[in-house]
Design a protein around this nucleic acid. Structure first.
Length: 574
RNA sequence: CGGCGAUUAGCGCAGUUUGGUAGCGCACUUGGUUUGGGUCCAAGGGGUCGCAGGUUCAAAUCCUGCAUCGCCGACCA
């Protein structure tokens, strides 16, 4: 490709609304342009990277025995009604009616369509197991699109679905896909981790997320420093510390706290250390037979954070989790949030495991501007339950029993689930078994955010000059940058010959034939992140040499003109 | 969807307080100059100041409403 016949579209200045580095660099390097919030046009350079990521994903899927097909973005509502998700999915599902006023949705995922396909086409156990995949545009009306293509409303996803007769068989395919995912991220040269995950709204039993590690990641993930254990922080179990609760040594005593509504104010004005107090959060409980939702108190240590997922998974707590409004709290307790505590509270109380081993602690007195000190479980609070409610923190013991937990941030680029029979049962997808009876299939599903990987790769590979693409997904393998070609007699021929030779050798070459100054070309190629730049200048041609610069190491190699193509080919494919 | 902020040329911004016929840098066009790290000079093109309504002799500027975009929180590849 010659830059004179290409859309390089690089920008010197960073558009103001791009917050994270990958979004800024994708705009500046001419990879994407925003059309509307969460909707992007992919320019030639961006599309090249996207296609290379897709190609690697396809190769590994094919290698794992999955078969590619393509399903429509537009899906009829009746399939979604059949699975029950038409009502569940909410506003993230884009819905519309066609000219005959029939309802449709734009596919945010394809479980319904694939299950419909398989139930019609697959009739016999002999055809199982079966794994099908596609690379397709997904549409989700995100509450808040952000970070460019990282969280877009339209994005490219590879989604695969597997069908089985037994859980063992599903397990087997799940392991194969897990391995295929690892292969993909290895080949992409990304620092990634598979972690245990919550199964969330898609449902099912076992699930792993694949995270690319990056400071800007929206998820926190926890690792053991002594084993392979890794989990999304929302999933990681917080064990009770391995210690007994001390015996009470203090009397329950109320003290005035007019200046303290929060844990930090309690510390600031009254010297109460956060880990010596508890927070009491009032949330809605599960509805009774009349549909009435009562209130439930959740108690965690002052320096800990509530894990909402754990809370709403508790049988007494309404899901999704909802904090009670101040008015209801005042009506039920007679005190405002900020002075709430477990002593004398007449509602179900759920206490975090770690809070449960505290003694002589501080909490609100359920009376405005008053707290108790010297609170002790059982003695002062008789009725309560103990559960895991909090986010783990760095240094907690690992749930696997080995080592302590460390926390890093990650971008979720893949997610695999064992779905079980959630969709196949709802949609009556079965085959004839060996004994001639109809049997519902069990399913797995496996997603990779292809367009998100592009952004995540940049988060991990950039410097002050721009992007530093991992070789397998760079838009070009190398750039040819001739110095002042239009003023030279010999450079045009040499540059053109090298360009043809490198193309013939199977490389993606960007030949910068613009009438620009060298600095402009160097800067553009570095911004775009091309792994190698071949510099052709009069200076070195006098000795029959050209210069090869490595974007990652900064290393410069002098090459003999005669053998340059072979040397470059070897370097690029190393 | 709740809280905060923004909207003036393709991009980055000034001008708004105190109303008076819209400006700077980059990019773009033309000519010259320069040429191993975003040259320099000159000339030029490009804006219903987000939209609608109001106040006023006069609105980018004041008032009201709406829209769009972004950030922080609850969901996901």
């Amino acid at each position: 490709m010659r830059t004179s016949q290409y859309i390089l579209a690089t920008l010197k200045e960073t558009p103001a609304d791009a917050e994270i580095i990958s979004h800024q660099l994708m705009l500046r390097a001419g990879m994407i342009r925003r059309v509307a919030s969460g909707l992007y046009t992919w320019l030639p350079s961006g599309l090249r990277v996207l296609r290379k990521v897709e190609a690697i994903v396809r190769e590994e899927m094919d290698k794992a025995g999955a078969i590619e097909m393509l399903m429509p973005v537009i899906q009829p509502a009746d399939l979604w009604q059949e699975s029950g998700r038409w009502d569940q999915f909410g506003d993230e599902l884009v819905r519309f009616n066609d000219r005959h006023n029939r309802p449709f949705a734009l596919g945010p995922t394809h479980e319904e369509v694939i299950t419909d396909f398989v139930r019609k086409e697959i009739n016999s156990y002999k055809q199982l197991p079966l794994t099908l995949y596609q690379v397709q545009t997904k549409v989700r009306d995100e509450r808040r699109p952000r970070f460019g293509v990282m969280r877009a409303r339209e994005f490219t996803m590879k989604d695969a679905y597997s069908f089985h007769l037994s859980d063992d068989c599903l397990n087997n395919t799940y392991e194969i896909m897990h391995k295929a995912y690892c292969n993909i991220f290895e080949r992409l040269n990304l620092d990634y981790r598979p972690v245990l995950a919550d199964t969330g709204s898609i449902g099912g039993s076992l699930s792993h997320e694949f995270h690319v590690l990056a400071e800007s990641g929206e998820d926190a993930i926890a690792f053991s420093d002594a084993s392979d254990y890794a989990a999304n922080i929302e999933k990681a179990e917080a064990l009770a510390p391995n210690e007994e609760r001390p015996a009470p040594s203090k009397e329950l005593k109320a003290f005035p706290t007019p200046d303290a509504k929060t844990i930090s104010e309690l510390k600031k004005h009254y010297g109460v250390k956060p880990h010596r107090g508890v927070k009491t959060l009032i949330v809605y409980g599960t509805a009774d037979e009349n549909g009435e939702r009562g209130l439930v108190a959740l108690v965690i240590r002052g320096d800990h954070e509530l894990n909402e997922l754990k809370a709403q998974n508790h049988p007494l707590v309404h899901s999704p989790l909802e904090m009670a409004p101040e008015s209801e709290i005042v009506a039920a307790i007679g005190a405002k949030p900020g002075s709430i505590g477990p002593v004398g509270l007449s509602m179900p109380i759920i206490v975090d495991r770690t809070a449960n081993i505290m003694a002589d602690f501080v909490a609100g007195a359920n009376k405005d501007d008053e707290h108790y000190s010297g609170i002790n479980w059982e003695r002062d609070v008789a009725q309560y339950q103990v559960s895991d409610l909090r986010n783990i923190v760095e240094g907690d013991p690992s749930p696997c029993g080995q080592g302590t937990l460390q926390i890093k941030r990650g971008v979720e680029v893949g997610h695999i689930f064992q779905l079980g029979t959630k969709y196949s049962e709802a949609m009556k997808a079965g085959v004839l078994s060996e004994s001639g009876k109809n049997q519902v299939m069990t399913m797995g599903c496996y997603g990779i955010g292809v367009s998100r990987i592009v952004a995540a790769a940049i988060e991990q590979n950039n410097d002050q000059y721009g992007i530093k693409w991992p070789k397998p997904i760079a838009p070009f393998d190398l750039a040819i940058v001739p110095m002042n070609m239009h003023k030279s007699h010999r450079i045009p021929d040499i540059a053109n010959n090298l360009y043809d030779g490198l193309k013939a050798a199977g490389l993606d070459v960007l030949f910068d034939d613009r009438k620009e100054r060298p600095g402009v070309m160097f800067n553009d190629m570095e911004l775009l992140g091309v792994p190698y730049t071949l510099v052709i200048g009069e200076r070195n041609l006098d000795e029959n040499k050209v210069e090869l610069k490595n974007r990652h190491t900064g290393e410069k190699l002098m090459l003999d003109l005669d053998t340059a193509v072979e040397t470059i080919k070897a370097a690029v494919s190393s």
